[in-house]
């Protein structure tokens, strides 16, 4: 991903550790970056707060100001959930919120954690003061739509995670934004107030009909697509693969741009292991495996090959 274009909110963080490149430089200038405009940082971050949302979900606030300052919407961190070797590998998490202090300076990040295995269970049980190694920010971020285009964000379950930072970026651009957010039941629609505070319109759906439309999130999405006006719409999707695929198919049918945020099993998050691959169609029209950690996690839905995509 050599044309990676990350537009961070702030300038280069001066608290970065001193492992910066010096080989091949002249006059003290940094060598031109190959992949990362901002060097990812590994921060031993203390848990500032943990908020239980339900039996399976919690929000962890992590003391990682340098990562918070460098993060762009849709980027992720790799969190080490054990100091030992079980589990061995880090786990990827979207940066959910950037927490700012009274002066507006980024002070912390939050992650939206869903308990599924050993690593996420540790994060579900974490207490204030616990420390976790947090590596980031990583990956290719969203491209926020600017007016007159509208932004439609489609989230399923824990797929809400990358959209709070995107909604913030869209609000600062003045882009009209709608969040389509689906879950199994009302009790699993979390933190909608974050979006309401930013002026985002909400369209909700639950499978049991306990809040919003009964059924899948495509119910309100299809209604909105049928009623949409002349303004161009840019779609963003994150959630279960069938949901993202359904959104991508509608985007294609309506000729709309669509970005999806993928979550594949990742070994390293930096492009070293080649385990998180997804297939995309290249210029030759043939499908090729690319790494979702550095070519994604945000990818152009039109280039993705959905057959065989996990999760």
């Amino acid at each position: 991903m050599r044309n990676l274009s990350i537009q961070p909110k702030v300038g280069h963080d001066t608290r970065a550790p001193s492992i910066l490149l010096h080989a091949g430089t002249g006059g003290g200038h940094r060598t031109r970056p190959v992949y990362w405009p901002h060097m990812p940082l590994d921060v031993g971050a203390a848990v500032i707060a943990t908020t239980r949302l339900s039996g399976d979900y919690n929000i962890l606030t992590l003391d990682a100001p340098a990562i918070a300052a460098a993060a762009a919407p849709g980027q992720f961190v790799m969190i080490r959930t054990s100091a030992g070797s079980d589990p061995l590998l880090r786990r990827p998490f979207s940066i959910f919120e950037i927490v700012r202090d009274a002066r507006g300076t980024p002070a912390a990040i939050t992650i939206l954690n869903k308990r599924v295995g050993v690593g996420t269970s540790r994060l579900a049980c974490a207490r204030e003061g616990d420390r976790f190694d947090v590596l980031g920010p990583l990956g290719r971020p969203f491209t926020p739509a600017a007016p007159p285009a509208e932004a439609w964000l489609v989230a399923g379950g824990v797929g809400l995670a990358p959209f709070a930072t995107l909604a913030e970026a869209l609000a600062s651009l003045g882009t009209s934004t709608t969040l389509f957010y689906g879950a199994r039941r009302a009790g699993e629609l979390f933190r909608t107030e974050i979006f309401e505070r930013l002026g985002v319109r909400l369209a909700l759906a639950t499978e049991d009909g306990s809040r919003g439309d009964r059924g899948l999130i495509t119910v309100p999405l299809d209604r909105a697509l049928a009623a949409r006006g002349a303004a161009p719409v840019r779609l963003y999707a994150c959630g279960p693969t069938p949901m993202m695929r359904a959104v991508a198919e509608r985007a294609a049918a309506h000729g709309l741009a669509c970005e999806v945020s993928l979550e594949q099993t990742m070994g390293c998050g930096l492009g070293g292991c080649y385990s998180c691959v997804v297939r995309v169609r290249g210029a030759d029209g043939a499908p090729h495996y690319v790494r979702s950690c550095i070519n994604g996690p945000v990818m152009d839905a039109a280039s993705l090959v959905w057959e065989g995509l996990g999760h």
Binding site: I19, L20, L21, A23, P33, Y35, G271, G272
Partner: peptide
């Protein structure tokens, strides 16, 4: 090259 911006390869 993936690590060129992360560690000093030299």
């Amino acid at each position: 090259v993936e690590y060129a911006d992360v560690v000093d390869l030299a």
